[in-house]
Design a protein around this nucleic acid. Structure first.
Lengths: 135, 135
DNA sequence: CTGTATCCTCTAAGATACTG
DNA sequence: CAGTATCTTAGAGGATACAG
């Protein structure tokens, strides 16, 4: 039995999606687009920070999100975690060299964003006004 | 009645999240991290493309996702859409100057990714092996 | 050929409560 | 202080069918 055009297209899609999942740039996007990732990296730019200091510097993040972001950055070798076993416990986080180099990309994005995002905002408004939603 | 520490923290969180939503860099991340955004921009780097050509160049994207990605890029003024009213209809898409300038950021990310993502991959494997999942 | 309308699934992010 | 364990929810992404 032969495949229909639709079946062929879908098997093709899956094949290409599989290779897409291995694309380094795609992986970077997934890594960096976590809601708190860039803020954590930025908070560490001036050196070691304790967990509670990060909470203060990034007030929007819940404790759970902060911890899970830190875990995944540590897993990726972008930050290091130092635990001091005392009562109460103390943990410090620090950027690795790799983390620092990623930060450069973040700054480039920040710069582009600050230069262009307001125009994009206007563009959105204008676009939405041309096709208003009638109620 | 006074607020509990928890209530205070939450209202603070909301306040900071609100300002976070206006941060240009955050907006850029949200814009660019759509699954097909960079691929569409890249596909247009050599000039105008018809809808069906984009489908061929980006086989992983379903028709719906391709169209909705194109719409949001158009809304942001990153691409232009030209419609030729004939039977059948023909539409061409093209990068705007702003789209081109964003592409430069994409290339920077691509370069960093190709340089570092494989090391990050190893880092992940190593990290996961230190804390294996017992079944 | 190009585009829209539904319906469905999966997961990132958040709320809450608990522990060493 | 630092971290973990559940439960819930909103929305991105996808499958499918249809239309100008």
């Amino acid at each position: 039995m032969t495949l229909t055009a639709n079946q062929r297209r879908q098997s093709e899609q899956k094949h290409h999606n599989a290779s897409l999942d291995l694309c380094p740039a795609r992986l970077l996007l997934e890594l960096i687009s976590g809601k708190w990732v860039t803020l954590v990296l930025l908070a560490l730019v001036d050196g070691q920070q304790r967990h509670r200091d990060l909470r203060k510097k990034i007030p929007g993040a819940s404790q759970k999100m902060l911890t899970s972001t830190l875990r995944s950055l540590e897993r990726d070798g972008l930050i290091s975690r130092y635990i001091t076993v005392s009562v109460p416990v103390r943990t410090d986080y620090e950027l690795t060299p790799r983390g620092h180099s990623l930060l450069q990309i973040v700054f480039d994005m920040k710069e582009w964003a600050e230069e262009h995002m307001s125009a994009i905002g206007s563009s959105r408004v204008e676009h939405d006004e041309r096709k208003p939603t009638f109620i």
